[in-house]
């Protein structure tokens, strides 16, 4: 089961996570006991600068976003990263005084882990906001699909198709991009399948509306059946888009719990 939710986050955090993991093992197995750790002021200063930049950009993002969940969730991650960085600075100072300091070593490991965890929280919070953008577009499509019920003339149908088309294209593009980003294979496949179904149903829906409008305008027999067919296609599309919204919000842990 993938540890990181998206390829972007995985690409950023996987390498350093492995290194910290190895360091912790060395530490726990006593491989570093009795060994001097030289001056780490330089590398710690680099981390400090990077934390400062990340938090600055993060705070700018929080100030400009309209996403209230991100405004609420991101600040704790800033604090976690900043506190972890303080531990690293303190550890470097302690090591300068005593290169064999065991507490300093603990601080280094805790600080590194905290940086990793805080950065992961930041990236996940940001990623969840990106997902909410996709979901907003999906919900817009769901809403516009309901307008199919009131299309009763060919002019209405032309307008409806002109409006629905670009929205569907945008939704499809966003979902395809998201699908590529996911590390969880089952979630990718679920998104792919549902989106495929929606794409296939779109022309079917337009056709069903067209038949309904044609029969209704000529007062021919079969209006009810045409209406049922239109409703059936509309409901299938809505169900698939709702499934897409559900899957977009799944995380690896949900899958584990379900399993």
């Amino acid at each position: 089961m993938p540890v990181f939710h998206t390829k972007t986050i995985e690409g950023i955090l996987e390498p350093v996570a492995q290194q910290i993991c190895h360091l912790v093992i060395m530490h726990e197995e006593g491989e570093v006991d009795g060994k001097a750790i030289p001056d780490l002021t330089g590398p710690v200063a680099a981390v400090q600068a990077a934390v400062s930049n990340l938090v600055r950009v993060g705070k700018e993002t929080v100030q400009t976003t309209e996403d209230q969940v991100m405004k609420r969730d991101m600040p704790p991650a800033f604090i976690k990263v900043e506190n972890s960085c303080s531990k690293l600075v303190q550890a470097a100072q302690m090591l300068k005084a005593d290169p064999y300091s065991v507490p300093a070593r603990d601080y280094l490991i805790d600080g590194s882990r905290g940086i990793l965890s805080g950065t992961s929280d930041l990236l996940l919070t940001f990623d969840e906001a990106e997902v909410r953008k996709v979901i907003r577009v999906c919900k817009g499509i769901l809403e516009y699909l309901t307008v199919a019920e009131v299309v009763e003339t060919m002019e209405d149908l032309i307008t409806y198709t002109k409006n629905l088309g670009p929205g569907m294209t945008k939704m499809s593009k966003m979902i395809e991009e998201r699908q590529q980003e996911l590390t969880h294979q089952e979630h990718r496949q679920m998104l792919f399948n549902s989106l495929n179904t929606v794409k296939q149903l779109l022309p079917v829906l337009i056709s069903a509306i067209k038949i309904f409008v044609a029969i209704k305008s000529t007062h021919s027999a079969g209006v009810d059946e045409a209406e049922r067919n239109r409703c059936f296609t509309f409901e299938k599309m809505s169900a698939e888009i709702s499934e897409i919204i559900r899957v977009l919000q799944l995380t690896t842990w949900d899958e584990d719990t379900w399993a």
Binding site: M26, A36, I37, V47, A50, G58, S112, L123, F126
Partner: peptide
């Protein structure tokens, strides 16, 4: 700017990686 957040996170991850490497290499040496 979506990309800027990710860029800065990448820089931080690399800086942390460099720090951990500095700690590990001396320990291993």
């Amino acid at each position: 700017d979506a990309g800027e957040m990710v860029r800065q996170a990448r820089v931080l991850a690399q800086a942390t990686s460099d720090l951990v490497n500095a700690m590990r290499s001396d320990a291993e040496a």
